[in-house]
């Protein structure tokens, strides 16, 4: 399942159809929220990791589990608690008495989709254990490196309001997440739909059909890699990231990884929208989710409404977008 030579080539229309089908399946479990769900899928297709930050009870965990089911990936969940140790995530060597030697027992990291629930409740030591896994796709335990399955994606959740007993993710760790999305509260009708579906289902858990499998996800990701980005659009992404660095409220702006993330996420979003080329509107659609968490606002502005999202909004409303007559 982790070999990559079984990847079949998909045309962009086939890939877009599969992506739509995945979103449809996820939409059966999670009511509404098309934009954030589309963003999460776009990030997975762009080989990225996602941080879902919102209040408890808004369907973060459900969305992550449903994505794993619909994408046909191995799913594992790690509840991040204050006493969680790196070895609890990566796995560790355990003495096997039958063969009189140490054998490696794999931790929850060895999955296609890892749900890191309440990631900010665990100390930095354990958070850092995720870094290598997320960036390199491998874990090193006692000097020995173990490759993780491909695809490997982390969907982490965090609660933005409770600060007691939490360890906010450091900037270096936040930068590893391609997107940070919030789900927000459902509308009245959507909320009733949640209730009605639960009553109709007559059981708590909800399961959806697998649309594809790990090989299929790799093929989708390969299709995203073939999506064209016009030079003007690429330069627009760079200009946006650059503008966050010069904004008056910003202490540290988005890194070059931010502009790269912008292009990659926009490609994923373009595929979800059924195109094999990126338009500036794709960049605008993903900009908030890609850039806001990479921006550190000046500490003296803590009492004002200044935030990463507001900076991104301001930047989007000031950086010149590619015009009609700049074609090659």
């Amino acid at each position: 399942m982790t070999t990559s030579d079984d990847t079949t080539t998909l045309t962009h229309a086939e890939a877009a159809a599969i992506a739509q089908e995945v979103l449809e399946q996820v939409g059966r479990a999670v009511v509404g929220k098309q934009k954030p769900l589309g963003l999460v899928l776009a990030a997975i297709l762009a080989k990225g990791h996602v941080l879902i930050e919102d209040f408890p009870g808004l369907g973060k965990t459900l969305a992550a589990r449903t994505f794993a089911q619909a994408l046909g990936l191995d799913f594992s969940r790690a509840q991040f608690t204050p006493d969680l140790l790196p070895a609890d995530l990566t796995g560790s060597y355990i003495y096997d008495q039958r063969v009189s030697e140490f054998s490696f027992r794999r931790g929850p990291l060895f999955a296609g989709l890892l749900l890191a629930d309440e990631i900010n409740r665990t100390p930095p030591k354990t958070q850092a254990a995720l870094l290598e896994a997320m960036q390199e796709g491998q874990v090193t335990v006692e000097g020995e490196t173990h490759p993780l399955p491909v695809p490997f994606h982390v969907l982490a959740t965090a609660n933005p309001v409770e600060y007691e007993g939490t360890y906010p993710l450091p900037e270096a760790q936040l930068d590893r997440f391609l997107l940070r999305v919030g789900f927000g509260y459902p509308t009245t009708d959507e909320e009733y739909a949640v209730v009605a579906r639960r009553l109709e289902r007559q059981r708590e858990e909800v399961s959806v059909e697998a649309v594809t499998d790990a090989a299929g996800v790799r093929a989708l990701q390969a299709a995203v890699e073939r999506i064209k980005v016009d030079e003007s659009v690429g330069r627009y992404c760079v200009a946006l990231a650059e503008a966050t660095r010069d904004h008056q409220d910003v202490l540290i702006g988005a890194s070059p990884r931010g502009s790269l993330g912008l292009v990659l996420a926009a490609r994923g979003w373009a595929l979800v929208r059924g195109r094999d080329y990126v338009i500036p509107e794709d960049v605008k659609a993903v900009a908030g989710a890609v850039l806001a968490h990479r921006i550190t606002v000046k500490p003296e502005l803590w009492m004002t409404k200044a935030s990463g999202s507001r900076v991104v909004e301001a930047v989007l409303a000031s950086v010149p977008a590619p015009g009609a007559l700049e074609h090659r």
Partner: peptide, 9 residues
């Protein structure tokens, strides 16, 4: 057109 607006918008 505002400079930040895309041509389509």
């Amino acid at each position: 057109r505002h400079p930040w607006e895309t041509s389509s918008e």
